[in-house]
Design a protein around this nucleic acid. Structure first.
Lengths: 350, 350
DNA sequence: GTGAAAGCGCTAACAC
DNA sequence: GTGTTAGCGCTTTCAC
């Protein structure tokens, strides 16, 4: 039997201390502090005053155990140190903190697992109320399990019927960037893609690169131009990948006069490759990216702007509503985008 | 009395289910699964097999409540979306995940509070076993409270006696960068600092800018050169701040021929300002940063390299040791640094 | 509107 | 080496 001498000074303030000091039962304290009904206003005020004097806050573990809710959510990202993911996370964290939720991070890529082997991580097991997947998708099996454990899911980037998805209209992104280049007079436009096999390996829908490419194709169709698949190279959404991709494009027998990079970071790498090869941008080659990364204006990169922090914030708000039982739109919500014309695009040299 | 009909199928697997299936008591299951001694090997194997078949994992809330340990730690950062912080976080998260710890993030800046009003956040209250402060310090009062609640603290960047601190030798950073410029022949070297009031507002020791500046001064002293305080301007560790700072330096009656920026991101802003003003780098002005940011090689920026991911990883390992009761070095641990000479530094135009 | 008491699912004495 | 059992600090019926 563990010692529990009642004379011993408690190390931490418990709900019982508050109840004792307020001359009420623990049940009333619990109700009062959580803003539940059925507490007389004077009683509530007294309890709140005492609780704050005693610097009391409910033990989250005890509360989770009794109530089954943890007031914390997990945000899963493929890479933690990518610009995009850091910003989504920052946006989400700010909203969650404000609402009193803890944000726990799960970096899927870092654990060396496949891209959507998420559950294997396991830290979210009974530890969080919900999960935000950033450019990551769950298998049907995983989704079923989440549902059975009463955890909510919100997607950022990817699409999935029945769960709330936030992002941008990636088809429009592709169309906007491509149309800009076509309007300038370009006819051979390269693409720096994500993964070469995005379409095949991912039934659940990594739509981002796919849709941007679709926008590219639609822009070409609308302009009556042919699409040359040889101009599509993978850049893996990294600076290095963008560098490699640009090298490949420049080594083509008939290189493009303009390149549409699916992210600014890949565009940075592309810019680097161009400089190394002595290619003048935009004189010899135009380049447009996506994101409007912090350093893009520095590099004077033409790009499609999106408000990434806001994606995270909206995802967090959606999650909070979901958890509160508020009815929310189940279809995809897109944030506005706009083309920012800077110095890396110009008409082709004739 | 809550209904608890024993015939009703349980929604989740509990330790009791495992105990029943294995024909042992819950205590044995608990011991076996946590690798505690005093469990016969065959028994342990049987239990482990059954647990995995039943896909059982201990409920963290129950476990935390009973044991008083949550197997989760908080990482507090001033800004979540800064390159440095994202990388420290990434490094730490990877190690924690590997060790089975959850990482919860606390963005102090985002909550609009002062820089070291950390406890006000409160999500760490009884929720985590430890706290990693990245370029953030706790007041003595906060530290006392952390200790009384048996939470461990590790610092990254800042210094504090009695708690483990990880970082780099910032005096050496300052000396390295400055000596490089002096060796090239520069005699008027500007500094893009952090906050103008770092020294005053922070008794607990925001040593980073202070020490880099000290290194700068030591390098000058060693070279027998005077130090001109007019050349010190704040850049607030942001791209925009670096831009403003460079403008101020260029507007000086007697502008510097070289600038030492305390971070690469501020150097990016400085580069931008220089370009806007038509200043040739490194022809008219040399520039050296600190960090070796992902895009620094792209901008061909001379900088002092540090392995930021590794800082986070080491902090995490230190925390895990601390939590495990392993004796660890209490004094500051510095990671190696090195100067990377690239294209933004050259001898001054005579 | 308030109180009593039964758990939530574990861990840690202690007994055997 | 294993079982028994008393909590951990809350929330939530249900009774009053």
């Amino acid at each position: 039997m563990p010692p529990n001498a009642s004379l011993q000074r408690r190390e931490r303030t418990t709900i019982e201390d508050v109840a004792f000091a307020a001359g009420v039962s623990v049940a009333t304290v619990s109700r009062a502090l959580r803003g539940l009904p059925n507490v007389a206003e004077p009683t509530r005020e007294r309890i709140e005053k005492i609780a704050s004097e005693l610097d009391y806050r409910a033990d989250p573990a005890a509360s989770r155990l009794a109530a089954g809710r943890s007031r914390s959510v997990a945000v899963a990202v493929p890479l933690l140190d990518g610009w995009y993911f850091a910003h989504v996370l920052a946006g989400a964290e700010a909203v969650f903190a404000e609402a009193g939720y803890d944000t726990i991070i799960v970096s899927v890529g870092a654990q060396g697992q496949g891209r959507h082997v998420l559950e294997a991580a396991g830290p979210i097991h009974r530890r969080v109320d919900g999960l935000i997947c950033v450019d990551l998708s769950l298998t049907d099996e995983e989704l079923r399990r989440m549902r059975s454990e009463r955890m909510e899911v919100v997607y950022v980037g990817r699409d999935n019927a029945n769960i709330p998805c936030l992002g941008i209209d990636d088809v429009e992104v592709g169309r906007l960037a491509t149309t800009h280049l076509i309007d300038l007079g370009h006819r051979r436009i390269g693409i720096i893609n994500g993964d070469a096999h995005d379409h095949e390996d991912d039934v659940v829908g990594f739509v981002v690169p796919h849709n941007r490419q679709m926008g590219y194709e639609l822009a070409h169709r609308d302009a009556g131009l042919p699409v040359d698949l040889a101009l599509f190279v993978p850049g893996y959404f990294t600076i290095e990948g963008g560098y490699e991709a640009m090298i490949r494009l420049l080594d083509l027998p008939e290189p493009p006069t303009a390149v549409f990079s699916f992210s600014d970071e890949m565009a940075f790498g592309a810019l680097w490759a161009a400089r190394e090869r002595g290619i003048d941008v935009p004189g010899d080659l135009s380049l447009v990216g996506v994101d409007d990364h912090d350093v893009s204006k520095l590099l004077d990169l033409t790009t499609v702007h999106q408000d990434v922090d806001e994606h995270g914030a909206r995802a967090a708000r959606t999650m909070i509503d979901l958890l509160a039982g508020v009815e929310i739109a189940r279809e995809r919500q897109n944030s506005p985008i706009r083309l920012i014309e800077r110095g890396t695009t110009s008409p082709p040299r004739t």
